[in-house]
Design a protein around this nucleic acid. Sequence first.
DNA 1: GTCTATATCCAGATAGAC
DNA 2: GTCTATCTGGATATAGAC
Lengths: 195, 195
Amino acid sequence: MMAAEPIRDRRAERREATKTEILDAAWELVRAEGLAALTLRDLAAKVGMRPPSLYSYFDSKNAIYDAMFRQGNLELLARCEALPEPEDPLDALRASGRMFVEFGVEDPARALLLFLRTIPGFEPSPETYAIAVRIVELARTRMSRYGIPADYFDLWTSLVSGVVWQQIANEPGGDRWTRWVDDLADMFLAQVNRR
Amino acid sequence: MMAAEPIRDRRAERREATKTEILDAAWELVRAEGLAALTLRDLAAKVGMRPPSLYSYFDSKNAIYDAMFRQGNLELLARCEALPEPEDPLDALRASGRMFVEFGVEDPARALLLFLRTIPGFEPSPETYAIAVRIVELARTRMSRYGIPADYFDLWTSLVSGVVWQQIANEPGGDRWTRWVDDLADMFLAQVNRR
DNA sequence: GTCTATATCCAGATAGAC
DNA sequence: GTCTATCTGGATATAGAC
């Protein structure tokens, strides 16, 4: 007797596709109008629905923010895992700095959602927050493998995020701050080696 | 004949006092509820008025944000001007870094209003924005007096603001990032002297 | 200057027919 | 799953009496 083909749940697939479509539209809206300006009306209009229909896919507006928070962190986690691991610590720092800065400035609304708490009622669910924690742990582990003392990790994150926020706030789309990222790695390593 | 006493405009004084009172209440609200959560209802309630009465003092909600933006920048400007100017560049950098970091973390809502653009409809008026520009010019001038090349100014601002945002986002009220500010000055000067 | 009353609009969310 | 209709509440802002 032949093994039965695995049966695809076409309904579930379709549902997931629609959820993805809604989230894509939400990202477009926040990129264009700002993170706080997202409304279910606009979102529904963008995907060709009436607002109540969105509730078939997400329980609330905050559930949408939560899904976006999750997507953003998964994307960042993927980029962290895809990072090369060269022998030279300086090369490694530069690569990770560039990656993170690029991630931050390429989508300011996403950076605001992921890294600052600016939406009044929203807090990520524990499951999605766990992804953010994994990212930090991964970065921390990598640094220690390069022999950098653990307490310097915080210093490094502040250097990188400083570049991101200054660039976003003062010259979105430009490189007046992002171009410092390689020097940042120099400075940082020199400081680490100083003691 | 005796010179006439200068006549105080008691009505105008009273009016200014009320405006100040409203702004004080607004600061309290945004500190407690977040910058975006400010509403005229809450604000009026806090000063013992009905919402329409606020329009006797401010033309619109954005005018209130603008006045707050102005106040915040005036405060920062005053602190910049009050900064000591020691001979040693390192001491000067440390003092300015500490001052700025303290200013940022002591009121996250104010930092958000002044340094990031997070309120959808709000843009500061040219007059108030001019104050922010003066602050930057002042800091820039000071740095050049200490012999630091002009292009390093951006680097320094990113170092300091990185500490501020990381502290605000991840441990408001703590010092896990702010305590790095002296090292930041070391690192920065070392990098400047390297070339 | 402050109030009541109201205009206008928009938000997130729910009920229930189809 | 999607819709229409509606609820409920809140926002900024204005008109006009006192």
